[in-house]
């Protein structure tokens, strides 16, 4: 991974003159976190990191509605970004939706071996005592003052990484590193199938329990790369008043279900909504379910091909698949 980082820094330095800023990863508040980094000056390229904690989908910052303050682009100006395989699906989908312009992004692609879910790690060890981390493609070694802890990488990867179909960036201007072979026999909708095996009552009870925890912080919506309605979102309008102000399982359910419907065939399964949830609600499963329906009906997978119109953005008078 170190060699890829060196190559990434080199490439970033190369394209920096062509872009207004370059979105990548920098170090986070501890060794088990990284954070999105916005680079404008060449001097900041040294702050780039690439490790098993670069989970954030940087596509979230691409729709013009979500450009950061002071980082607004003038017509013709470009954004550069580094993009993992899973996240590249969001870019492809935004292009298919014509929400962003291809000519305004320069993408550095790379292979990915999966990112580590710190919450899974937290359940195994006291992560606050870790003071050194060594990582490579296959394993991770964590060191505390007293001893060394190693973890089987499969046990601590994000669920989406265990089920990764697209380890290499699908759309890029520059690809660094050697492509990784995708795992075989991946079940992209595995978790959805698990839920579907529940009886209706069990499933309803499962979601009631999850929705009861939701605090409506709107992080799931705000981080979502394809949620770019901003203040026109159903959650923010008072007239009409779609969602009650009251925060309880019932009104939370409406928020999440309506949102899931808006994501049907649009969700690119990056899992950011579930990752950011401070109440640890697996909210990505709702949109995943919608996607699985669209896959069954239309054979459609979002964010794979720029030229395929998402099924819910078009219609035929005689729809042969319905």
């Amino acid at each position: 991974m170190k060699d890829i980082l060196a190559e990434l820094k080199k490439k970033a330095a190369e394209i920096l003159p062509e872009v207004s800023y370059f979105i990548c990863y920098g170090s986070g508040f501890d060794l088990l976190h990284s954070a999105p980094l916005f680079v404008k000056d060449k001097g900041d390229i040294d702050r780039l990191v690439l490790n098993r904690f670069c989970i954030h989908n940087l596509t979230s910052y691409l729709p013009p509605q979500k450009w950061p303050p002071g980082w607004l682009l003038e017509p013709g100006e470009k954004i550069g970004l580094v993009l993992k395989g899973c996240d590249s699906r969001s870019v492809i989908h935004l292009l298919a939706e014509k929400a962003i312009l291809r000519s305004r992004v320069i993408i550095i692609g790379l292979p990915c071996w999966g990112m580590i879910d710190v919450n899974k790690l937290r359940n195994r060890i006291d992560i606050n005592r870790i003071n050194r981390v060594e990582q490579d493609k296959e394993s991770i070694m964590l060191f505390t003052d007293a001893n060394e802890v190693s973890a089987d990488i499969k046990d601590i990867l994000y669920d989406k990484c265990i089920n990764c179909q697209y380890p290499n960036t699908l759309i890029s201007d520059h690809f660094i590193g050697a492509k990784k072979e995708p795992d075989k026999g991946v079940q992209p909708f595995g978790k959805v199938l698990e839920l579907e095996r529940m009886s209706l009552l069990e499933r309803s009870a499962f979601w009631d329990k999850e929705f009861a925890r939701c605090i409506r912080c709107k992080a799931c919506r705000n981080v979502c790369p394809v949620c770019y309605c901003q203040n026109n979102c159903l959650l923010d309008t008072r007239v009409p008043h779609w969602i009650k102000e009251r925060v309880d399982a019932n009104s939370n359910r409406w928020y999440h279900l309506i949102r899931a419907f808006h994501l049907a065939g649009r969700c690119t399964e990056c899992g950011e909504c579930a990752r950011v949830c401070p109440m640890r609600i697996p909210i990505n499963l709702l949109a995943m379910k919608m996607n699985s329906e669209l896959f069954e009906l239309f054979g459609f997978r979002s964010g794979i091909d720029v030229n395929i119109k998402p099924p819910l953005m078009t219609f035929q008078l005689e729809e042969d698949k319905l």
Binding site: F38, S60, P68, W71, I215, C217, N222
Partner: peptide
């Protein structure tokens, strides 16, 4: 502006 470039304007920090 620099410090909040990545901010998502969500309510997590205030709610927790």
């Amino acid at each position: 502006k620099e410090a909040t470039a990545a901010c998502l304007s969500c309510g997590i920090c205030t709610f927790v």
